[in-house]
Nucleic acid binder design. Structure first.
Lengths: 259, 259
DNA sequence: TACTGACCTTGACCTGCATCAAGCGCGCGC
DNA sequence: GCGCGCGCTTGATGCAGGTCAAGGTCAGTA
């Protein structure tokens, strides 16, 4: 996705073979040979929390993977109403080949490092590396599945159900990353402000706050601090989401909503 | 996507070279050679309006393109609340490779003909035909863009704005297909019942009906009959959607919401 | 210690849409 | 013709969540 106009610290070059997202990112199916080419073409760029990575409507100059940190994608209506349409974590790919204009803005939620390619160069490489194209297809398919779950949340769920769904998604992600079983007592980091959660869930920050209070009062969760939440009754929380438990995450790494 | 259990009329074989969606479907980048192979592997299947093409949670046995007709994809919550998550027209591709279970159900909205492949066979061919994979990637990227516009609609728009957005999408589609300029007086077919529109927009059918009445009373549209609507004030309708006019549909055929 | 601003919570009130209910128009079977 | 069911519209009512407003907590700074 396009590099922000604001000058950034450009990180030192790191070998792809040492890359922390090597096994999950868009390059994970690339052969050693292909990787050498990617290694030459790529460049790193760091963004501070809150910084814009690309603006809605701006030309797309670069695209690439989140190496670490969290990035939110938003769309904004004329009058300023904003809806988050993507929340990207390490190894997720941001930007889309074969399009000139960014259809959303991308904001660094935490400090972020991106591994980027110039768009034209990436597109050219994409045409030659079947592994790259295959992996990108897989990732976009997963993202589409996530987007559809998200649509159900936005179209049909109550505020309470939305918040519970959001927390379950974070909980599943945490348990996966920490290789901990998903169970009561799990401490979950919430990498978003209340405002960002509201933009994610299609609610206002007041409603988010109230629903969180309610979950607390009902004894389903406890807040360690503003950004850390302990699960006290996972089963009840899962019930609230109203998702069909049989349908959650069979295969692949498409983790309900978070791509 | 999986073939319904209900027996269907299987259409006579048609040559790919004569196919009405040849230039837009997933096979549109395939070489004549590749096309020959697809021609041998494909089979047609017809579905009557209202018939289920695949059920949410069912194994995916086949996938392929809509040859003609309209197909809606839905997700359903435990208690029966339903949200449409995709609306597919001729040349759109339904089903996703590399996944065993359908994450949504697909219902024929009108009479439908599908051009299908057995999943395992399609996946195998996909690995060999770069054109096929490339085109599928393009289509999925467009679909993802649509899904994100849809998320904004569901998360942030009022009932009035949602309906106006829906009508504008239909209008743009109609003008594109009929190669008519998008202007006042255009007659637009609405290929959905009020209930399906409601599922599309995350509303109830009563609200859809009321908002449509309102647009009628305000003189923005006129109903020729239940399923045909004439645009009387396109400019005003576009205003109501609250979409940023500069951002609508620059390149590609990603036509806001409808993939 | 006090001040400021960012972030969050809570309360009071209001409204847009859902819900519940009735009725209309039309095609279809008998 | 008549009755029936389906799809749609319209009206009355209720409530979930938005809006507006006040206040609390905490980190940073002076």
């Amino acid at each position: 996705m396009s590099v922000a106009a604001i000058p950034n610290l450009t990180a030192l070059h790191q070998r792809c073979s040492d890359c922390p997202i090597r096994n999950r990112a868009v390059c994970s199916l690339s052969s050693p040979q292909e990787l050498t080419e990617l290694d030459r073409a790529k460049f790193y760029r760091d963004y501070a929390a809150g910084q814009e990575i690309v603006g809605e409507g701006a030309p797309i100059e670069a695209l690439g993977s989140v190496v670490h940190g969290v990035v939110a994608l938003h769309k904004t209506l004329e009058d300023g109403r904003r809806q988050m349409v993507g929340l990207m974590f390490a190894s997720d790919f941001i930007g889309r080949p074969m399009r000139n204009i960014a259809p959303y803005d991308a904001i660094a939620v935490t400090d972020v490092r991106m591994c980027l390619f110039h768009r034209s160069q990436f597109e050219e490489i994409l045409g030659r590396h079947v592994g790259l194209e295959r992996r990108l297809l897989e990732m976009v398919l997963d993202e589409l599945d996530c987007a559809r779950d998200w649509m159900v949340l936005l179209g049909r769920k109550t505020a309470q159900e939305r918040l519970a769904s959001f927390l379950m998604i974070l909980a599943r992600r945490t348990s996966r990353l920490e290789k901990t079983p998903l169970m009561d007592g799990l401490l979950v980091e919430i990498p978003l402000t209340r405002e960002a959660i509201a933009e994610y869930l299609g609610l206002t920050i007041e409603t988010v706050s109230r629903q969180l209070t309610r979950l607390r009062k009902d004894g389903l969760v406890a807040m360690e601090d503003q950004r850390h939440l302990r699960l006290l009754n996972l089963h009840a929380l899962a019930e609230i989401t109203r998702d069909d438990p049989g349908l959650i995450e069979e295969d692949g790494d498409s983790a309900g909503l978070i791509g």
